[in-house]
Amino acid sequence: MNKTPEAMGGRPIIPPDTPFNPALFNHSMRQFGHTGFIGMEYRSHGENWIELALPWREDLVGDPETGVLASGPIVSMLDNATSMSVWALRGRFHPQVTLDLRVDYVRAATPGKTVFAWAECYRLKRSMAFVRGLAHDGDIADPVAHAAGIFIQVEPESWAATKGDAA
């Protein structure tokens, strides 16, 4: 399999066990793909948690009458933040895929306001990482959304594919 950056649509493969630097990782992801398009920003992190930000943008709106962001970009940010929280806890990168993700929409995000995602890995086992998080638009005590999910830890070979690979 050709794993040059060119074959991967410009995305470099991250070798497993690469030390995880959340700010650098997010900066790199922002150059490409969905994370780049949605425009997620790194804010801060701790031992097992990550905080990201998503500035409001008109082309991400879900309800043109109110200007409220679509829930899709908020799920995307929670997916990234929960995923990154596992690597923060490990201290290094390891390939993983989302098994499931549940999001409760507590209230609509305020139109025009940046939405933040705070997520933590609360238990890391050999095969699975258990994560939870929330989204808010300025006051973490007044969340926009609540999330819970599980990431399966996988081998590098099954993580990245070139276009010809079967699903």
């Binding site: 794993k3 991967m8 649509g9 995305r11 493969i13 490409f32 793909g33 969905h34 994370t35 398009f37 949605i38 679509a70 829930s71 899709g72 970009p73 799920v75 995307s76 940010m77 929670l78 997916d79 990234n80 390939p95 895929v97 989302t98 993700l101 993580w159 990245a160 594919a161 070139t162 276009k163 690979d165």
Partner: peptide, 22 residues
């Protein structure tokens, strides 16, 4: 679209969730 790509060669989970929601 590249706008939906996550890890190299695969769709982003958030983009898939967004499509399911719509």
């Amino acid at each position: 679209t590249d706008r939906a790509t996550g890890r190299p060669g695969y769709l982003h989970g958030g983009a898939i969730a967004g499509l399911l929601e719509i």
